[in-house]
Design a binder for these strands. Structure first.
Lengths: 138, 138
DNA sequence: CTGTATCCATGGAGATACTG
DNA sequence: CAGTATCTCCATGGATACAG
């Protein structure tokens, strides 16, 4: 079982290890551009300039940097057609990228219901309210 | 169905709307401190100072700011015991926070397998390799 | 104890110009 | 086309001092 339900007070090794996995995924998907790039490449292989057109607002610097990271993580492959003139570079999403779908879907589902919840507030039933006995002095 | 499998070239409304949900979730979970705070509160309600001790390295400023955000999102409740002296404030995770578990679990599972994959590289079977015909000039 | 206010260092990201 | 190099701006976050 991945996430312990009742972690002890101090950070245990198991706790930090589990968190590291979550953070790995979060860091890969996080940031402003990773998702748009991945989505743009779902439509098939694209060249650098085409990507920059599809991912609205991204600069060449950022696109280059983000593509490198995604490539290092095995999510896409960079291939060069040196014979073409001028040289053509295409970026192709790997099938490994599909393994991200359950993650993205989980994020999407939660985000969607959360937005609904925030927009249409319920009765604010607060749980385990206010005072609880053992207030540890500190 | 949340995420379209084959988005068109340009960003459609459906595409950006779906992405907004993902980003909502990503933004809430992202950052350096959100996860550690949530995890720390899984063990039960805690006071400000106790949280600062449990979440290693966080400053009062950051803790205060992050707690506000989590409260605004309905994930926790801030309650004040004004009668106590000095005043005591406790933060309690709401059961709504449990809805994040599938998300965190998905992130965790992917992050774990990804780290294994990165650490123990497979045969680098590149798909849809290199050259593909219709190179759109631009 | 529970924060807030202020100052300040750092890094991330945009704009621009340039190279192969 | 496919990037890289520089410069600069600004938001984020740490440190510290202070307040209720």
């Amino acid at each position: 079982m991945p996430i312990p339900t009742k972690p002890p007070h101090l950070h245990t090794q198991a706790c930090t290890t589990a968190m590291r996995s979550v953070r790995d995924a979060l860091d890969l998907l996080g940031g402003k551009w990773k998702l748009p790039i991945i989505l743009a490449l779902l439509g098939g292989p694209k060249r650098f300039k085409q990507l920059q057109r599809d991912v609205l607002g991204i600069t060449a610097k950022m696109l280059s940097k983000e593509l490198k990271e995604l490539e290092m993580n095995g999510l896409l492959v960079r291939s060069v057609q040196a014979d073409a003139t001028p040289v053509a570079v295409t970026y192709t999403l790997q099938s490994y990228g599909d393994t991200l779908f359950p993650v993205i879907e989980a994020l999407h589902d939660w985000g969607l219901q959360h937005r609904n919840r925030i927009m249409h507030p319920q009765v604010p039933a607060v749980e385990k309210t206010a005072v609880f006995e053992q207030v540890v002095a500190a």
